[in-house]
Structure formats: C-alpha cells, structure tokens
Simulated scan of single mutants.
Amino acid sequence: MTRILQRGEGIPDGVAYLPASESTLLWGRLFGEGDLPAAEVDSGGTLIVDTLSHEGVMEDQGRDPLGYFRGQGIPDQHVLRDLVEFAASSAEHSFEHDGPHLVTGPVRVSGARPGDLLAIHVLDAVPRVPYGVISNRHGLGALPLEYPLEGDLYSVFAQVEQVDGKSFGSIPVAPRSDRRARFELHPFLGIMGVAPAGATRAHSVPPGPHGGNIDINMLAAGSTLYLPVQVDGALAYFGDPHFAQGDGEVSLTAMEASLRVTARFEVIRREDAVERFGELAGPLVETSDFLVPTGMDPDLDIALQNCVRAAIALLVAAYGMDQRHAYAYLSAATDFTISQVVDLVKGVHARIRKNDFA
C-alpha cells in the first residue's frame, strides 16, 4: 500500500514547503492580483506543494471526509488530516456559484513581470493516499442529459493496486462486483496557473490564458508548463490533483486524489520568450518528446482552430517554418487531442514531436 503523506511528513531538508491549510487554500476560486503570497521563491527555486482533492469535502458528500471515506472502508488514519481540518474550517463555499476545486497558493516568483513567461517545471508528483474518486455530478459531463442515470451525483471509489511492482488504478466493473477494471496511473495536476490581472478571483473551473484548470494529462513529472505572466510576481497556484485522466475527462472528473508536487520555477524574460516560442496567447506544455500548444473556447470547433493557430505560430517562431509549410506539417504529422470537454471552456492540445526538427 502507498504510504499516507500527512502534512509535513517526509519533507526533505533544505527544500521550501507549502502545506495545504485554511490559510493557503481557496475553495472554488483562483488566487488573484490582490492576494498576499503564501510562499516566495526566486527564479530557479524549488518548492514542494501539498494539494488536496475536493472529493469527500463537497457539500453533496456531506462536507465530512472522515464519514465519507469510512463509507468506502478507509480507516480514519488513512484520511488526510489537512483535508479533515479544512472541511471543518470556516471556509466559505457556494455550491452553486463556486467551482469544486481546492487550490493551494499563491506563490510569488521574484522578478516575474507582466509580459514574461513563467515556466513551472514539474519535478515530481507523488500520491498522498492510495485511493481516489471518479464522479459524475450536477448533470454535467459530456452527456449531461443522460448521466447520472438517477439522482444528482454518482461517484465510483477507485483503489491503487500494485501489479508486478507497477501502480494501477482499479474500479469494480459494476456495483458490488468482484471483477475489476485496471488502468495505468499518471499523476498530474489539473490546475496550475498564474493570477489573472484584476481584482476579482476567477472561478476555478474554466481555464484560460492564465492556465488554471487546463486538465492536460501530459503535465506529469518531467514536464514543463509555460504561462504568460499577468501580474507582478506571477502568483502561481496548484490544485485539482489526479492520479489518472483520459483525454476528454468525459464523466466530469478523473481519478481525483491528493498529490504532493515538487516544482521548480523559472522566469523567462519577454525577449527570450518571444525568440523561443513567439507571442504566446495561452499555456504551452513541453515534455521530453513534445511541444504542446493549446487552444480553448466554449465551442470545441473554435478551441481546435485556436490550437491550430497556436501550433502554426509556435512552429514559425521555434523552427523558422513558413506558415503554409507549418500548416501542412501539422496535418501530416501532429495529433490534435481533446484535453477536456467538461470545464465550460473546452480545451484542445497538439503534440508536436521535437525530434522531427532535430
């Protein structure tokens, strides 16, 4: 069984740490320009961040993680204490008007200015518990008029199993069935972002140029997220932890479960950013193999068009391609994938193989 990473346990010496607590969490909103930083790092600095899943805290689950997970056979000592404390806190949340997510932050990055890029390098993403929840609620998801089949909420409890030394998610194929479906785990954060300009705290569900709830499952350990800085210090934040998610996230949530993430922050000055990537209008992901531009819009067709435009602009800036040749290359060699269709603003991302330009 994966060990339980309670708050403060297992933090290596010399690495800054941002715990999840009432003073460092927002529920259903993203940190904004007026929020005071909970942590500060220099460009090049590393931070360990604890994140919490909202499952077990939501009002339709009783806002009682101990009671909720007891009902799934989880002993009290295997429920995260910071989750229990937050649920019992005075934190305000509107089930109707706020998002569901618990968001940890904000992190001020010294020297980051509007126009720069903030690179968040994900060094590690470690499960804090060996279980999670997959939910379809509120009549949302890809089939909002069809599921849940009854009621306003249907949640499936998922376990982490070890098979030949590898971790898998596991759910029963039907209620009370002994047969199970198993799937590979790829822990990542659905929410990473920077504070949008303006005094209003943005809703946590729709993603945008600030990042936020982009739900791109390629943002696992070893990846980098580039975000256009909108306010001084960037004010980065983290949330919506997943153990696994299929592209599309059609049911509304993926395997939601708390993670501990280690991230390194890098400020890229505007001049250098434009030379490397062109003028980025929104998030860009990089892995060892791919450059991953993004496109977003409430209309999935327009989200795809925006992603194609972003990919053409990236190829022109990064590799000196002619626009017409970039368009042709994308058609022949690049997969355009639906990131998610459940976050009000839909997302598409492209996988451009870096090796094609070696």
Score class of each variant (00 low, 15 high):
326 A>R: 00
192 M>I: 14
177 S>T: 07
46 T>H: 03
312 I>R: 02
232 D>P: 06
297 D>P: 08
4 I>R: 13
150 E>D: 14
339 S>K: 01
341 V>E: 03
134 I>V: 10
309 R>L: 12
335 D>S: 15
41 V>Q: 09
64 D>Q: 11
171 I>T: 07
175 P>E: 06
344 L>Y: 15
328 A>H: 12
226 Y>M: 09
92 E>H: 10
298 P>F: 03
85 E>H: 09
94 S>Y: 12
137 R>T: 05
295 G>P: 03
256 E>S: 08
341 V>T: 11
314 L>H: 07
51 T>H: 02
325 H>A: 14
254 A>Q: 02
41 V>C: 01
184 E>P: 12
328 A>S: 13
212 G>F: 00
169 G>Q: 00
313 A>L: 12
90 S>V: 04
330 L>K: 09
162 Q>F: 06
119 A>Q: 13
276 R>A: 15
333 A>E: 14
126 V>N: 04
84 V>D: 13
315 L>M: 15
260 R>T: 07
144 P>Q: 09
152 D>Q: 12
173 V>T: 14
147 Y>K: 13
341 V>Q: 02
80 L>D: 06
41 V>P: 00
18 L>V: 08
91 A>R: 08
171 I>E: 00
52 L>A: 08
82 D>I: 04
328 A>G: 11
98 D>G: 11
135 S>I: 03
57 V>L: 12
76 D>C: 06
287 T>P: 02
127 P>E: 00
21 S>F: 05
259 L>K: 03
103 V>R: 01
210 H>K: 11
8 G>D: 14
248 G>P: 05
138 H>T: 06
192 M>W: 01
172 P>Y: 08
299 D>K: 09
40 E>Q: 11
193 G>E: 03
112 A>H: 01
284 L>H: 10
328 A>D: 13
76 D>I: 02
340 Q>W: 05
281 A>F: 05
290 F>R: 04
139 G>I: 08
352 I>H: 05
211 G>V: 09
323 Q>E: 15
134 I>H: 09
227 L>I: 05
101 H>A: 12
